[in-house]
Amino acid sequence: MIRVLLVDDDAIVRAGLRLMLGGADDIDVVAEAADGAQVPALVAEHRPDVVLMDIRMPGVDGLTATQELRARQGAPEVLVLTTFHTDAHVARALRAGAAGFLLKDTPPREIVAALRTVAAGDPVLSPAVTRRLMDQVAGDGGQGSREAAARARLDLLGPRERDVAMAVGRGLSNAEIARSLHLALPTVKTHVSRILTRLDLNNRVQIALLVHDATPQDGSPPGS
């Protein structure tokens, strides 16, 4: 069973999500929270696999809650909710360690599928929305200093780890990376795990964002 914690300040939204997820025989909504401040205690008590987190809440917002939660050892995955896919908070949530996000008008079957994907350790990012997020991140101030800092971090990787990181940045799955780099799938998984550990990152989304930050404005590969 995939254990899910719902976090949203709107009781109607929570009730709708609980009802919808109740139709999936492999998902169990173990608890609900109306504020990000309730998340740490509920996670400790119920040990969910995934936290379905709203962003905008009147108390502790979902961004702050995500950042604090993902900084903890053994934290569950976080799948954030948002109304607008241009919301700058979403990009910040991904940097904080969220595994992805859903729009609140996402069809029920896709929400269920996204929870399963995130619980399995893979990110959930719509390609169209990802492009807009990347454009938004690139448009932030301080691009030059961020690019230099990102390149310095990528320089900590070995040549093969760097190749894998660049492939993750292009949005390739482990199987696609294995084929493109002529590596065994377990080897790719090992490289991804080492990249996360060496760069102190939470998930593949953060690897992709780091690669994006290190890429010059002209699109040439980092360090070229």
Rank of each mutant, 00 (worst) to 15 (best):
R3M: 00
A91C: 11
D140C: 04
L157D: 08
D155Y: 07
G139F: 07
V188Q: 04
G59C: 07
V80K: 03
R162Q: 11
L79T: 01
A34V: 08
R14W: 03
L183F: 12
V30N: 09
A178C: 06
L183M: 15
D218A: 08
D218N: 15
L185A: 11
L185E: 07
V90M: 00
A88K: 13
H46S: 11
R194M: 03
G59Y: 02
V80Q: 00
P127R: 14
P222I: 10
G100A: 03
L5R: 01
R170E: 15
L102D: 00
R162C: 06
L52I: 06
V211G: 03
Q73C: 07
E77T: 02
D218W: 07
R146I: 14
L199V: 00
D105C: 00
M1R: 10
A88L: 13
M57C: 10
V7P: 07
I55Q: 08
A15I: 00
L209I: 11
V192N: 00
I111R: 08
G223M: 08
E147Q: 15
A65M: 09
G139T: 00
Q206P: 00
L154P: 01
H191E: 12
R92L: 12
I2L: 05
S145W: 06
Q38N: 05
H212F: 07
V188Y: 02
R204E: 11
T82C: 13
G100P: 09
A119G: 01
L181I: 13
V39Y: 05
V13M: 12
R179L: 14
V137I: 12
S180G: 10
G169D: 07
N174C: 14
R109C: 01
L103K: 08
S126N: 15
R18G: 08
P127A: 06
V4L: 06
L19Q: 15
T215V: 09
D163G: 10
D10A: 15
G23C: 06
A208K: 11
P40H: 05
N202M: 07
L63T: 09
V39N: 05
D163S: 14
R14S: 04
V112T: 15
R146K: 10
V78R: 03
L63F: 12
P216I: 14
P186N: 01
V164T: 01
P222L: 04
A119S: 02
R95N: 15
P216C: 05
T86W: 04
A175C: 00
H46N: 13
A34K: 11
L52M: 13
R162I: 11
L181E: 14
V211Y: 03
A93W: 03
S126W: 13
T83Q: 13
T83H: 10
T197Y: 10
L125R: 13
P159F: 01
V124F: 09
R116V: 08
A149W: 04
D26C: 02
